[in-house]
């Protein structure tokens, strides 16, 4: 589903990604972890064609970025730590707007379905600016899955959530992954990443330094490896 080879991204003279290779198979749930400034968000922004690679090859479902980014965006759902929602619109209006942008058919039914999935049906006609952070993030996931994407990218989705809201988000992520979608999630939370994902990639020094499949290491060993890798 995702093929990244020799990816370099520099801002001015400062390289953030230095020849990164990254592959994700269809149906896989991969968590990318790493310290602040490691380039996790930069990697996701390149995958979403929000940023251009300085060098290297990026393919999503066989589509080359940034040349075929329009076609690639059709199969992408993105949930960021920012909700990407309009505060002055209701949940219904936000989903209706994004549904039109993505050309979603049977929009009324799909909005009802998505709001039910993220347990927001009761707040359908309330303004998003009046929602708690957790509710906004649930609706953001609703926006991300509205067009039934093949590939979901989550950029630190647990940021700013209280434990209950974070647990609810985990349930949603598991459901999304169980339905055969490919999921890539960046996170600072090593424990959560290890529990949710089928593979954890440690991003350090602008490259994927280690790749660990679920069950290879226990929680303590994963933490130890992370600190060894990221502290050099």
């Amino acid at each position: 589903m995702i093929e990244v080879r020799g990816l370099v991204k520099a801002f001015g003279v400062k390289p953030v990604l230095r020849g990164l290779d990254f592959q994700v198979a269809e149906g896989e749930f991969v968590a990318v972890v790493g310290p602040n400034g490691a380039g996790k968000t930069t990697l996701l922004r390149i995958l979403t064609s929000m940023a251009r690679p300085t060098m290297g090859e990026v393919r999503i479902a066989g589509l080359q970025l940034p040349r075929q980014s329009g076609a690639a965006r059709k199969i992408l759902g993105v949930v960021s730590h920012q909700p990407l929602l309009y505060g002055d619109l209701t949940a219904d209006q936000n989903l209706r707007f994004f549904g039109r942008m993505y050309g979603v058919s049977n929009l009324d039914d799909r909005i009802s379905e998505v709001l039910s999935i993220v347990r927001m049906s009761a707040r359908r006609y309330d303004l998003v600016r009046d929602y708690s952070r957790g509710m906004q993030q649930r609706l953001a996931i609703g926006r991300g899955i509205l067009h039934r994407p093949e590939l979901l990218l989550f950029d630190e989705p647990h940021t700013g959530l209280d434990p209950d809201a974070a647990d609810m988000l985990d349930d949603l992520l598991i459901r999304v992954a169980d339905e055969g979608r490919t999921v890539v999630m960046t996170s600072h939370d090593l424990t959560r990443a290890g529990e949710l994902a089928s593979r954890v990639d440690i991003l350090s020094g602008g490259k994927i330094a280690r790749s660990i499949k679920r069950g290879e290491l226990d929680r303590g060993e994963l933490n130890q490896l992370y600190y060894e890798v990221t502290r050099g």
């Binding site: 059709k74 199969i75 050309g103 379905e113 067009h147 039934r148 999304v176 979608r181």
Partner: peptide, 28 residues
């Protein structure tokens, strides 16, 4: 209650999709 089967959106015409997006932004 599922997230919904995977679908590749946008089967409609390019011009229709373009105008629909312009209209959606104005409406929003």
């Amino acid at each position: 209650e599922g997230v919904g089967a995977v679908s590749r959106v946008g089967p409609r015409g390019a011009v229709g999709g373009y105008l629909r997006a312009v209209g959606a932004i104005v409406w929003k």
